[in-house]
Amino acid sequence: MALRVTFVAAAGSSSVLAERFEDDRPLDRAGWSEVQRVAHALLPLAAADLRYCSPAPRSRATGAGLGYAPLVQLALRDCDMGRWRGLTLREAMAREPEAVDAWLADPRSTPYGGEPLPAFIGRVGGWLDTRPVEDGCRVVAVAEPSVIRAALVYVLRAPPATYWNIDVRSLSAIGVAGRAGRWSLRLEGASAQAARA
Rank of each mutant, 00 (worst) to 15 (best):
A119L: 07
T6F: 09
Q36F: 13
R29L: 14
D106I: 07
P132A: 15
S59K: 01
W164D: 04
E188F: 04
G63E: 07
D129Q: 06
L17E: 14
A195Y: 01
R29I: 11
W127R: 00
R51S: 06
G113V: 03
V100N: 14
P159K: 07
R186M: 10
T6N: 01
T162K: 11
Y68S: 02
L87G: 06
S59T: 05
L3R: 15
V168D: 12
L17F: 09
D24G: 02
R182A: 12
S14L: 06
V153C: 09
V153R: 05
T6P: 00
M1A: 14
V35H: 06
G63N: 00
A39K: 15
A105Q: 12
P57A: 13
S109K: 09
T62E: 05
R83Q: 11
S33T: 08
T162M: 08
A2G: 11
L185Y: 07
R25Q: 14
A47H: 08
G86M: 06
A61R: 00
R131Q: 15
S15K: 07
R29W: 10
S59M: 01
L17R: 13
R179D: 13
L89I: 07
H40V: 11
T110Q: 08
M93A: 12
A195D: 14
A173G: 03
L17I: 05
A48W: 00
A158I: 02
G113K: 06
R90N: 06
V8L: 09
